[in-house]
Computed example of a mutant assay.
Amino acid sequence: MRVDHFDFELPTDRIALRPARPRDSARMLVVDGRSPVVDRSVRDLPSALRAGDVLIFNDTRVIPAQLEGRRGQARLGVTLHKRLDLRRWQAFVRNGRRLRAGETIAFGNDVAVLAEERHPDGSWTLAFAGDEPVELLLERAGTMPLPPYIAARRTPDEADRTDYQTMFASRDGAVAAPTAALHFTPELLASLEAAGIARELLTLHVGAGTFLPVKADDTNDHVMHAEWGRIDAATAERLNKARQDGGRLICVGTTSLRLLESACDEAGTIQPFEGDTAIFITPGYRFRGVDGLMTNFHLPRSTLFMLVSALMGLERMQAAYAHAIASDYRFYSYGDASLLIP
Score class of each variant (00 low, 15 high):
85 D>Q: 12
222 H>A: 08
91 A>W: 12
139 E>S: 05
86 L>C: 05
76 L>R: 14
97 R>N: 10
279 I>V: 14
217 D>N: 14
115 A>I: 02
286 R>N: 02
135 E>S: 03
203 T>V: 09
254 T>G: 11
284 G>N: 09
79 T>A: 07
193 E>P: 04
54 V>I: 09
255 T>F: 10
198 A>T: 03
163 D>K: 03
252 V>P: 00
327 S>A: 15
121 D>Q: 05
84 L>H: 01
208 A>W: 04
125 T>N: 07
294 M>E: 07
181 A>S: 15
81 H>K: 04
12 T>S: 11
265 D>I: 02
79 T>N: 14
107 F>K: 03
214 V>E: 03
163 D>V: 03
2 R>W: 06
340 L>G: 10
17 L>C: 05
156 P>T: 06
331 F>S: 06
58 N>K: 10
102 G>E: 11
268 G>T: 00
220 N>G: 09
244 Q>C: 11
244 Q>S: 14
307 L>P: 09
146 L>H: 06
256 S>I: 05
299 L>V: 10
22 P>W: 06
307 L>V: 10
250 I>P: 08
320 A>S: 14
187 E>N: 09
112 A>C: 06
168 F>H: 15
211 F>N: 10
336 D>G: 00
261 E>T: 13
272 P>A: 07
288 R>K: 15
162 T>E: 13
292 G>D: 02
133 P>H: 14
231 I>Q: 09
143 T>M: 12
306 M>Y: 00
176 A>S: 04
266 E>Y: 08
79 T>D: 05
199 R>L: 03
130 G>R: 01
43 R>E: 05
255 T>D: 11
159 A>K: 14
226 A>N: 08
197 I>L: 05
